[in-house]
Amino acid sequence: MSYIKSTFRHPSAKVNSLGFAKTAYEGALSTLCAGCGHDSISAAIIQSFFEMNIEPHKIAKISGIGCSSKTPTYFLGKAHGFNSVHGRMPSVSTGANMANKDLQYIGISGDGDTASIGMGQFAHVVRRNLNMIYIVMNNGCYGLTKGQDSATADIGSAGKKGVENQFAAIDLCQLALQLGAGYVARSFSGDKKQLIPLIKGAIEHKGFAFIDVISPCVTFNNVPTSTKGYEYVRDHLDATGTIDFVPERQELKIIHPEGTSKEVKLHDGSKLILKKNTHDYDLSSKREAMGIIETVREQKKILTGLIYLHEDPQDTHKKINSVDKPLNSLSQGEVCPGNAVLDALNEGFR
């Protein structure tokens, strides 16, 4: 039994600007099936937070139920975490965010957890524009319960059991767009070059940031007949363009020829540099984004990359006009100002 990860790291491994080694962002050794796409996404999350110089204890990771929802155990071991109930990650995140809006929230869910049992919760957290990152590790099946088709499985796709799915697939990116998400992206677990800048962009984005990551289930849904297996996905990827994340203050090193790339500024001054290929459209146009997803789908391809970006400064807290200080830091007297105040309030309604 060798299932122990050594504490030794590469001798020339660097620390980030906070002085943390990457180990400070790692978690327990994964118990998922060897080769599961979810592990790659965990690795991308670790790398992103490490490079973004975010203190691990200023992060809260929240998940539902499923193999995907287990992954927070395998990254950011020093962050806050709550492995909640199936499909309930959005409401638990909302609650936590209400209590302490100063943390960086990252919600992890699966296609089952989001598109089936948690669909209602998903819809509402999007429309409320909760300030969080929402990642769906999308394998087109219920991995944890042995691979039943999920609501994101494409019509005609067949997993290990060989039975073709008969029901229409839910496109979570389109749904998020429709419900008003400000940051919508799709990626593939096997493409960290794209996934890491997308996660970094999501970290910087203020408001709801949604990333649908196709993540093959090697055990139940990685056969040639499945549209969510490594081979099929790799053969059908169609990126909106390559993407680089440039943090605030950092000088741009890569200069793209004029007209082939564009910069998207985020609220804090950091930028996403997009190098476009065939799909040139207005990233901040919901209508165009919807259209492009549809077009690419008709071509039997999978659109990945940043699909839509439109920062809405009105996150949930702004919308409900909550106080500036996080609620959990208010004193007893501030949260519960006492009878006199209540009486005065009631008086006002008489």
């Binding site: 599961c36 796409g37 690795a43 096997g190 093959p216 990685n222």
Partner: peptide, 8 residues
């Protein structure tokens, strides 16, 4: 199958 598991 280039799943990156070893790399990670």
């Amino acid at each position: 199958i280039e799943c990156d598991a070893c790399e990670d």
